[in-house]
């Protein structure tokens, strides 16, 4: 009886996990089909669709754009987010709670709302300042920085919380100035948090679809948008192969992150 209940519980859990993973499993399967039409059972298997990706400029361009935006947004997000996390974790100040909520807010604002409001804002800026804003690379990067910051703040704050201040005080007692203390003691100690924040920020930026839809300009679309536009048209093994590339890249980044911080604690 007890065993039966265990099995029932594990079975129910397996069903839910299978449900979550099912779309990814099928997209990966489709990428290796020999025929172009996604019909089952497949006529055979082939790797040619991965080569076919390179023939379509839009995928290569989309990948490059996503990579550029992701890397730049992550770098700037770190430069802004790490100091903010230091302040939130270490310094008591009156506006601490509202500021923390502000920095984490992009996590809970739905992507469509983020996108629409930024779009309207960019139109207004463009009219008011008479410069190109809408659809520019920098406007897109700015939007992505906003969604990278909460991950950096969250993960770096988490790793600062477990850090003993005594080491830093010892360094200062031995004559190190705050700057040296920061670089030689604090940064190495919270490196896991920084790496995890950077990877999560990058992954968030790279996979972002809803917000980016409103911000990209013609000829500068990111990979998820290229995928969306293609799917609007048709589903075939080429797009599945592109999806596999995205799954592998993001999955790899998450496996690396997991070596630095336990994902269970931070997501």
């Amino acid at each position: 009886m007890r065993h039966l209940r265990r099995w029932a519980l594990n079975g129910a859990a397996a069903v839910a996990l299978g449900y979550i993973l099912m779309p990814l499993v099928f997209v990966v399967w489709l990428a290796f089909f020999r025929q172009e039409i996604p019909s089952f059972p497949p006529d055979g298997y082939s790797l040619k669709w991965f080569a076919a990706i390179l023939d379509q400029r839009k995928f290569v361009d989309g990948f490059r754009n996503s990579l550029q935006v992701g890397v730049l947004a992550t770098a700037i997000g770190l430069a802004l987010g790490v100091p903010a996390a230091l302040c939130l974790a270490r310094r008591p100040f009156r506006l601490r709670t509202p500021v923390a909520s502000l920095l984490l807010m992009p996590l809970i604002v739905p992507g469509v709302v983020l996108g629409t409001s930024m779009y309207v804002f960019h139109v207004e800026l463009e009219n008011g300042l008479d410069v190109d804003v809408l659809g520019t690379f920098y406007a897109l990067v700015a939007g992505h920085i906003v969604i990278v910051i909460p991950w950096v703040v969250r993960l770096v704050t988490a790793s600062l919380a477990g850090l003993d201040r005594a080491t830093e005080e010892a360094a200062q007692n031995l004559g190190a100035n705050p700057w040296v203390t920061f670089w030689r003691i604090t940064v190495p100690a919270i490196r896991p948090g920084i790496v995890a924040g950077a990877l999560f920020g990058f992954v968030t930026s790279f996979g972002n679809l809803e917000m980016s839809l409103f911000l990209v300009g013609p000829g500068r679309t990111t990979l998820p948008i290229v995928i969306l536009q293609y799917l609007e048209w048709k589903i075939d093994p080429t797009i599945a192969a592109v999806s596999v590339v995205q799954i592998v890249l993001i999955g790899g980044a998450m496996l690396i992150t997991d070596r630095y911080v336990k994902l269970a604690r931070v997501v």
Binding site: L24, P38, L231, I250, M254
Partner: peptide, 15 residues
Amino acid sequence: PLFVGNAVRAAGWMT
């Protein structure tokens, strides 16, 4: 699947 994005998952369901 959360980070892979909704477009890729939609492709899976279409399959």
